[in-house]
Design a protein around this nucleic acid. Structure first.
Length: 588
RNA sequence: GCGCCCGUAGCUCAGUGGAUAGAGCGCUGCCCUCCGGAGGCAGAGGCCGCAGGUUCGAAUCCUGCCGGGCGCGCCA
């Protein structure tokens, strides 16, 4: 199935071809002048340019041919050569019936048979999660849902940072504080304790302290570097302690991402490719790609036609430790081997773009990445505070993700109490609603921005719950659910025979537009197209709802038709929100 | 210095080379005997950073400038 505009496009394209013109000129889209027409085709203008013929003449030619198509109720020419189109109500009603019957709501299975690996989240082990991980998690998770819906096999990988210098910093800090721990006893023969020697909260304090100390004191940094190398080369005590650090951290990550309803298929990290690195580097040397440079081992990736400086990808530092470029490259190899993906998508901060350029080039040069596999860095902008500077707490510290979620929840609870929504509910349901409202507020506020742009994070604004917000969308969806419940109680059934008056038609066109909004989002790896669509649909419905009393409607066929529109709106809105990772409660 | 991203209403942001550039917040008016008012309807508010160019047509494409953010070999 397809959208209504796509259906019209294929019809009009045929007539462009019949007229001896390229069929790509036949693109039809929803009109941006609803006072003039429902759909428009501007292709005659572009075609006329290519042919050096008067545009009005080309448009007239196409319009004459379109008169043979029964789907059109009106075909007009306007301006320099716009073709304005209306469809018959019968055609619109048929399309609506097809949407009702289609589980995909008109979205085509374009990804059928294809595989995509999505790399998002990327929290670092031992470091507290902060607001920076919010965007990576929720944008990546939304894209995963979108690819899945379009038929792809999707593999979402959290790709933790668990193998770098920060591990050595934490380990050496622990060694300084607790030299008596068996992990630091070189002749200890084990077994090491099963229980971690610290809690998640303690770990969150250790890393910042260690990091600060290393920055201030070169000797401490040297110890951290050394510990990193020893960890990577397999010192048993360090590996055992590292395991505890990872396990304790993962627990915290699961809590945070779980609260946000962000899902991962794989909980892998940089360390998972450690065993591949040796052989990979051997091959890279043998192939002539990897070279010694200034005491390090690198892959030069610069090209003669580069306009910018392109540093090489570093495989081994002078101290023998690997870097994240090394593990990223090895991870490409692992993913190719395990999943043979058509595409790997990295949802990582825009500031990493040079790094990914280096990794992608190295992967292409060395043939680690097959030629027909796409590698894309879908970067996102920085989250700033209302002052336009990187987001901080009021005290100027780093806002932990956990605290941010708690603040959103608190606002949601307060708003629910104020509206007396929870009067006849038990505490669990109220808490569930508060949670869904908070998640909707946080996610929608983030996702509705253009992915690549920096954006201002304003907790007060997004939790006000009025206007273009996640909670407003939940409210609209819940209102429809309530209406449908009441209809069912009264024995009113929706009907597949659509009766279309002006408000019904206006809503129908927005419903028919869902696949186009979805395609736009998928094409640009940009969930904000879906946010925009959810908002348009909710607003259109709200206008419809205000203009058309449904349950009191005496005409049974009209009432049944409108109930069917409500049901389809509810499904479409809920699906759109689901693709954004936003769940809708039954009532609120 | 080189490179990337951004500049649209007071603020936060949408905008596929097409017709009259949109939304939310804020501001001004209306609208509950009615299915959930976290709502609806209407209004005011714009040299689309500046200057050129391409085009029948530019917020959109090209060039140059101005402002803001970020990145550029041993962190991730």
């Amino acid at each position: 199935m397809s959208s209504l505009a796509e259906k019209l496009t294929s019809i009009v394209s045929v007539h462009f071809r019949a007229a001896g013109l390229d069929e790509s000129f036949g693109t039809v889209r929803m009109s941006d002048r609803p006072d003039l027409c429902q759909f428009q085709c501007n292709g005659a203008l572009a075609a006329a340019k290519a042919l050096k013929r008067p545009p009005r003449e080309v448009a007239q030619d196409i319009a004459d041919r379109l008169k043979a198509e029964p789907i059109f109720a009106k075909i007009d020419l306007a301006g320099p050569g716009f073709i304005n189109l209306d469809v018959t109500d019968a055609a619109l009603a048929d399309h609506l019936a097809a949407l009702v019957a289609d589980e995909q709501l008109g979205v085509a299975d374009k990804g059928a048979g294809k595989t995509i690996v999505l790399d998002y989240g990327g929290p670092n082990v031992a470091k507290p999660m902060h607001v920076g991980h919010l965007r990576a998690g929720i944008i990546g998770d939304s894209l995963r849902r979108m690819y899945l819906f379009s038929g792809y096999r999707t593999i979402g990988d959290i790709h933790m940072g668990d193998w770098g210098l920060q591990m050595g910093q934490v380990i050496s800090e622990c060694a300084r504080r607790h030299p008596e721990w068996p992990y630091f006893d070189a002749i200890f023969s084990g077994p090491y304790p099963k229980e971690p020697p610290f809690t998640f909260e303690a770990l969150e304090e250790i890393y910042p302290t260690a990091s600060k100390a290393c920055k201030a004191d070169p000797a401490r940094m040297e110890l951290a570097r050394h510990a990193t190398v020893e960890l990577q080369s397999g010192r048993p005590g360090y590996r055992a302690l590292w395991r505890h650090i990872v396990d304790v951290s993962v627990e915290g990550m699961k809590k945070n991402f779980g609260a946000l309803n962000v899902f991962f298929d794989l909980w892998k990290g940089e360390s998972d490719v450690h065993d591949r690195i040796g052989p990979m580097v051997r091959d890279l040397r043998a192939g002539g790609w990897a070279l010694e440079s200034e005491g390090a081992l690198v892959i030069p990736v610069a090209r003669n036609d580069d306009k910018k400086e392109m540093p090489p990808l570093m495989l081994y530092k002078t101290d023998g430790a690997v870097m994240y470029g090394t593990t990223d490259l090895a991870t490409v190899a692992e993913r190719v081997e395990r999943y043979a993906p058509d595409r790997i998508l990295y949802v990582v901060d825009q500031r990493q773009s040079l790094h990914f350029e280096q990794v992608f080039r190295a992967a292409r040069l060395s043939r680690i990445a097959p030629e027909n596999m796409d590698l894309t860095h879908a970067g996102f902008g920085t989250m700033n505070g209302t002052d336009g500077k990187p987001f901080k707490t009021r005290e100027g510290g780093i806002m932990k993700l956990e605290d941010l979620i708690a603040m959103g929840l608190e606002k949601a609870r307060a708003r629910i109490a104020e509206a007396e929504i929870g009067r006849d509910m038990d505490a669990d349901e109220v808490e569930d609603i508060a949670h869904k409202v908070a998640v909707a507020a946080i996610k929608f506020a983030d996702l509705h921005n253009n992915r690549t742009a920096d954006y201002v994070f304003d907790l007060d604004r997004m939790t006000r719950f009025e206007g273009k917000t996640g909670p407003y969308l939940l409210y609209q969806a819940v209102r429809i659910k309530s209406l449908l419940r009441k209809a069912a109680e009264r024995g009113f059934a929706p009907s597949g025979n659509f009766v279309l008056h002006d408000p019904d038609r206006a809503l129908a066109f927005v419903l028919a537009d869902f696949p186009d909004a979805f395609e736009a989002g998928l094409r640009h790896d940009a969930p904000h197209h879906l946010c925009d669509y959810a908002w348009r649909l909710a607003q259109q419905f709200s206008g419809f709802y205000a203009a058309c009393p449904i349950l009191p409607e005496p005409d049974e066929s009209l009432r049944a038709s409108r109930l069917a529109l409500c049901a389809l709106t509810c499904r479409t809105l809920e699906k759109t929100l689901d693709l954004l990772g936003i769940g809708v409660p039954e009532r609120m």
